[in-house]
Simulated assay, not measured.
Amino acid sequence: MTRLGYQIPNFTYPGVGPDRLFDVVAQQAREADRSGFDTVLVMDHFYQLPMLGNPDDFMLECYSLLSALARETSNVKLSSLVTGNTYRNPAVLAKTVTTLDIVSNGRAQLGIGAGWFELEHDAFGIEFGTFTDRFEKLEEALQIIISMLRGERASLDGSWYTARDAMNEPPPVSRIPVMIGGGGERKTLRMVAQYADESNIICPDDQIDRKLEALAAHCEALGRDRSEITVSKQKSACIAPTREQAEEELLAYFDRRGLALRDASDEERAPWFANFAWGDPDTVGETYASLLRPGLDGFTINMPANGHLEGRVELLGQTLTPIIG
């Protein structure tokens, strides 16, 4: 279960072309693997997200990448954060995740969500539909996928998907955990309570308690033992040996994104820097420790500013492993 996960959300690095790209990604995964992270997760998108860069920034297909990372790592679970359900037929997705489990010798995890990035749906000719459509699709897909991952033949005559005795042979090496991503209190967290082993919430820090209360209420209504569900929170980091180095690496990241913050005041920088736990190891460790509370088991963390720099992921793992425990 994910208590300390490292997510790789971006694949555009200074001076790195396609020929060296996998080397830099694999370096991050290896550092996570040896420094205490329990899971390595990658984006499942085809275009870069607007909060992280431009649509034409590099983006790798996640399951091909995860299968390659299985050969670069030994300990961490491997997952998307999270699979866009709309992108794949659910029975095919079950086969894909099972194959990842086999090639990684039992280290696959399924992270899944309803899908939301309309631009890439339109560009790739994938039906986007309404908000309600996407959540109805996700619920039907989960019924097929979970049956197949648990060794059952899946059959469903749904509004969106059909399956007829869909088999999944060979079966997974391990019991593949299912993580549902998102913080929607009415739909997403209800599905977590009904179907998932894990919840990954994305929300402002001051909304953590509200999300945990919503999940607990859904569990109670469905008769689910809340303690069966592991909950992690997504929060970005920029760690370096000194505060000054971390600040410089954040500013360089914003430079690459065309945001001129070097000459900005602290007040003008604050909204951008607030998206990160940043600084030296003591400061970053204190930030994450302050967010832990009963019901929140850990974090998924990405480092879009400086995760590509050798040693930074390892430093973060060494800093947070003693805190997460």
Score class of each variant (00 low, 15 high):
M1G: 13
G5D: 11
Y6D: 07
I8Q: 04
I8S: 01
P14R: 02
G17P: 08
F22N: 03
V24C: 14
A26N: 06
A26T: 07
Q27I: 04
S35K: 03
G36C: 07
T39A: 13
L41W: 15
M43Q: 14
D44F: 09
H45Q: 02
Y47V: 08
Y47W: 10
L49E: 13
G53V: 06
P55H: 14
L66Y: 03
A68D: 03
A68R: 13
A70Q: 04
S74C: 09
S79N: 11
G84S: 14
N85C: 13
N85T: 08
Y87Q: 07
P90C: 00
A91F: 01
V92F: 10
V92Y: 10
A94G: 04
T96W: 02
T99D: 08
L100Y: 12
V103I: 15
V103N: 01
N105I: 06
G106S: 12
R107T: 02
R107W: 07
Q109C: 13
A114T: 12
W116C: 00
E118C: 00
L119K: 14
E120F: 07
F124C: 11
F124T: 10
G125L: 00
G125H: 01
I126Q: 00
F128N: 04
F131P: 04
D133E: 12
F135I: 06
E136H: 11
E136A: 15
E140S: 06
M148E: 04
L149S: 05
S155Q: 09
S159R: 15
S159A: 15
M167T: 13
N168D: 08
P170R: 15
P172E: 04
S174H: 11
R175S: 14
R175G: 12
V178A: 00
I180D: 01
G181R: 05
G182T: 00
G183N: 05
G184L: 13
E185A: 14
E185F: 03
K187S: 12
T188M: 02
L189M: 12
V192G: 04
V192P: 07
Y195T: 01
N200R: 06
C203T: 15
D206C: 06
I208A: 06
D209A: 15
K211P: 00
K211I: 07
A217Q: 05
C219V: 09
D225F: 10
R226S: 06
T230W: 07
Q234C: 11
A237V: 01
A237S: 11
I239V: 10
P241V: 08
P241W: 07
E247L: 15
E248Q: 15
E248L: 13
L250N: 00
L251W: 13
Y253F: 15
F254S: 03
R257F: 06
G258Q: 05
L259W: 11
L261F: 13
A264I: 09
S265C: 04
D266P: 12
E267M: 00
E267K: 08
E268I: 02
P271L: 12
G279Q: 08
D280Y: 05
T283M: 11
T283G: 01
Y288E: 09
G295L: 10
F299D: 10
T300N: 15
I301L: 09
I301C: 02
G307R: 12
H308A: 03
R312N: 12
E314M: 06
L315K: 10
L316W: 00
L316M: 00
G317F: 06
T319F: 04
L320F: 08
T321L: 08
I323R: 02
G325Y: 03
